[in-house]
Write a protein that binds this DNA or RNA. Structure first.
Lengths: 357, 357
DNA sequence: TGTTAGCACTCAGGAACAATGAGTGCTAAA
DNA sequence: TTTAGCACTCATTGTTCCTGAGTGCTAACA
């Protein structure tokens, strides 16, 4: 990009003004900007060059200029100045996590929802489950004469429960028996390996009891599947409707965002710490009039990570939102690694406690 | 309403045709209907009368007629024939609940989501918490050296858990101590009475231990609040965007639906088993171009109940959707009352077990 | 060689007007 | 009470004209 300083300044000014006002920017308006201070005619010459290079667009002949999606790209990569958050902004983000005693499983969903309203965007939040996550232990709690609660605790700190209705009277003895049995077969086992077939073999080992414990094993299998799948939330659909440029294709956009597979495929393309996908850069047609800002958070080594993304109009205040999102992701990672107890890496204790396997 | 048979037939035909096609219905088209069989001129005379009575509207002079919101009301109350569901339809609804081992807490959310996609509407689903719901018991499970899971079981069968991070090493002794203590103060206690102040007095009773148990008591308090609040879900926003007549005010409509208080106030006006609120009948401006079909489900006496509502355009296939919704609500109630174990009405057993209070 | 003033040009948006046709309201006859 | 006939209405579509913001180009200027 062999462009002189002034042309870059003009591209930057057009982009920022358009982001702010939503109106095409004309040469006369730019001539008043203190950093530019040349006549409208000169600016027009420069704009013609920027247009040639594909950095600017013109809604129609007699309108001002707006940045093309490539223009946004140059602005984001080379021109914009992201200032680090000031104390007030940091505390505003911190407040989004303002849950007194955070439950790690709910923190992601709740904070992402708050972030959506804070930014006026939609948010996508996912947790990525490591390959090597294991079952730490299974706990069973009596919850009624014929009801039990199954708790599955995984080595990445995720804890999930499920209520399970059974056909027999739940007694402490039965619970103790099944607790020991289930942990013997499951504790320390890699979660991704707990298939329907494996549960079947566990059922076989239960022998004559297998029939009555079927719902319990089923519940455990479902819990493993849920933990292994990680989480996927989209929040703030309503916010997107406040942008006229997104209303037209809102139905297609929303349908796309609700499809976890499609979105995951799209997000998996972004490998850097923070990535911006501007409008038509996105291979998915549904998103050509939207921008996506993607950031990762990490929860300590080998424990897990996740993705937080903002979805908004192309005309997005990148310079402000990128540092906000990064600080949010960083805080999320920090809070989760504090809350989620790291696996002590020795399942030996438990394996010993439960004997076999 | 002193209207002869033919006029009612015309109103009914206009309503059903308009629901099907979305186009204003003209006199010529109606003259071909086998039940009517009079000339367009006659139909026009009748339409003029129906218009006088406020049952029909005309988008403009040279267009056909569409039902007014009052016209829909008459159609719904007096004209439409709801046929009971056939076997196939019933099994389609049953399939929406197709969760092998349903967790009562998730059944409502999951099935309502499925219902939204089945009907092409948005759904609102709430559970209504009875006044007299009590804490059945609190269970504590070790989930790491400094992490515990708190389980709250309520007399209405609701079971909720929360992960809680503490500042001390979690040992079986501490768990046993706190378990006994907490149940002594909470088991059998009415959930709505567990205020922040009450938790404060529990903390005082803990004496020197109160400081370290603060997060645990906090978690218990939050759990009580959550159980007492019941649940509120809205699903299928995206579906609503497929109706052009709702796109205009979609932002306001969505914002309204996300506001639990407002929606609850609106739904609380409906006291019958199934109620329809047609467009402008709704006092809330955001909903004047939408219709709401509300149905209740019940989970056995004194255990609980809830509301399932469909939100869609005014031009809704009421004759089909009302029986579907009713069957859905009925099935939901049946499934929940099977799954949720009814309170045996004697907390005496537990009170005895935990001594005091 | 880069910058600027001047001016003709372009085109979206809005207003004004006419043509078209679907569907009506009214009247008089059956 | 029903119907045929006919004049009438008005949304829609297309055309034309006007206005003004903003441009592109040219020639003069520094």
């Amino acid at each position: 990009m062999e462009l002189d300083q002034r042309k870059l300044k003009i591209l930057s000014a057009i982009t920022e003004t358009y982001i702010r006002t939503g109106e095409p920017v004309g040469s006369k308006l730019l001539s008043f900007y203190p950093d530019i201070r040349v006549s409208p005619a000169t600016i027009r010459n420069d704009m013609a060059v920027l247009f040639e290079k594909g950095l600017l667009e013109q809604p129609h002949t007699s309108a001002g200029r707006i940045p093309s999606h490539l223009g946004y790209r140059v602005y984001i990569d080379e021109l914009m100045r992201c200032s680090p958050l000031n104390a007030e902004e940091r505390s505003q983000i911190d407040a989004l996590f303002n849950i007194k005693y955070p439950d790690p499983d709910r923190l992601l969903a709740d904070a992402a929802k708050a972030l959506a309203d804070y930014t006026g965007c939609a948010t996508i939040s996912t947790s990525i489950v490591q390959e090597n996550v294991k079952v730490r232990k299974v706990e069973i709690v009596e919850a009624g004469t014929r009801t039990m609660v199954i708790l599955l605790m995984a080595s990445n700190g995720v804890i999930r429960n499920k209520v399970c209705h059974v056909d027999f009277a739940v007694t402490p003895e039965i619970i103790a028996f099944f607790h020991k049995f289930a942990n013997g077969w499951l504790a320390g086992k890699s979660i991704s390996q707990i298939s329907s077939a494996y549960i079947g073999s566990v059922a076989v080992a239960l022998g004559e009891y297998s029939r009555i414990f079927t719902p319990v094993l089923g519940a455990i299998f479902e819990l493993c599947r849920e933990v292994n799948e990680g989480s996927y939330y989209v929040n703030g659909f309503t916010n997107l409707l406040s942008y006229p440029e997104l209303r037209e294709g809102a139905h297609e956009l929303f349908t796309f965002l609700e499809n976890r597979e499609q979105v995951t495929r799209m997000l998996s393309l972004t490998q850097q710490h923070t990535t911006v996908i501007v409008g038509r850069e996105n291979p998915n047609q549904e998103l050509t009039s939207a921008s996506v800002v993607v950031s990762r958070y990490d929860i300590g080594r080998d424990v897990g990570s996740g993705i937080i993304a903002l979805v908004g109009p192309v005309r997005l205040n990148y310079a402000k939102l990128i540092p906000h999102l990064e600080y949010f992701a960083q805080t999320m990672g920090k809070l989760l690694s504090e809350t989620v107890e790291q696996d002590p890496q020795d399942e030996s204790g438990l394996s010993a406690e439960y004997g076999l396997r």
